[in-house]
């Protein structure tokens, strides 16, 4: 407590009570689950609107849908996997939209909570991606995938003592962990940043001399809101492109 500034404990910022379902049950439905549900509904509505009246010259919702899909196709799939990766497009598109909508709730009024500022969402998505790229590797290379992934050819024999543990760690442990932590920590940091400036604005909203600082604080709040919109998009993009890179690296043995 500094100058009457009372920062709420972090549990109040990120933990939400269940709307229904018992307290510690595995199916307790809270705000985070609701945001995930909205992610499906919003994506489906967008795509259905976009697909309703298909025309050669897109406009409106169709334009939005097509440019996002084309962005993921050209900017992510073709860039990292080549034409062979087109079959993984549905996974990457759903990943992108799920994360983007989960993130964008950070700045939507009355929600102000990114679903991915809870470890659950990023962890699940990272684990699915982990399982997916291992499955792709097994499908494309057979059981040799593990050998190829852990012991890349072309390394001097003596170095394998060093390389094998490092490659094992980086491919099977660090990848999903960093994938989840990157998204989670970015969103949590942004959320805490916005909360900090909001709390500062509320505290400064007094009749004292401190009110002089209020415009600065409020300007920072507005600017950071814009910044967080960019971060929400960027993190969805980065998660998707990393998933694409991992899947792409499983498709072909390293050379």
């Amino acid at each position: 407590m500094i100058f009457g500034l009372e920062f709420p404990p972090i549990e109040n910022l990120v933990e939400w009570p269940n709307w229904f379902g018992p307290k510690d049950s595995f199916y307790g439905f809270n705000k985070i689950a609701f945001i995930s549900l909205v992610a499906i509904v919003a994506t489906s509505v967008l795509f259905i609107l976009g697909n309703r009246k298909r025309s050669m010259v897109p406009k409106g919702a169709q334009n939005l849908v097509e440019s996002s899909v084309a962005f993921i196709r050209d900017g992510i799939v073709l860039e990292t996997m080549g034409p062979d990766g087109m079959r993984y497009l549905p996974y990457l598109v759903s990943l992108f939209f799920f994360i983007l909508i989960g993130n964008i709730f950070e700045v939507i009024p009355f929600f102000h909570m990114p679903a991915n500022a809870r470890m659950a969402g990023p962890a699940v998505l990272a684990l699915i991606t982990w399982a997916y790229y291992i499955a792709v590797g097994l499908k494309h290379q057979g059981p040799k995938y593990f050998i190829n992934a852990i012991a890349p050819p072309g390394v001097p024999k003596a170095l394998y003592i060093l390389v094998v543990p490092i490659e094992f760690l980086s491919t099977f442990i660090v990848r999903p962990f960093s994938l989840a932590v990157r998204l989670f920590a970015n969103m949590l940091a942004g959320h805490i940043l916005l909360v900090t400036f909001s709390v500062l604005c509320i505290t400064l909203f007094t009749a004292s001399l401190l009110a002089l600082v209020l415009p600065l604080s409020f300007f920072m709040l507005v600017a950071l809101t814009g910044f967080e919109v960019m971060v929400a998009f960027l993190q969805a993009y980065i998660f998707t492109i990393l998933a694409a890179v991992y899947i792409g690296s499983s498709m072909h043995a390293e050379h």
Partner: peptide, 11 residues
């Protein structure tokens, strides 16, 4: 993304 991961682990 790779570089930032270190800072985020710090966070």
């Amino acid at each position: 993304a790779f570089t930032e991961a270190l800072a985020l682990i710090g966070f």
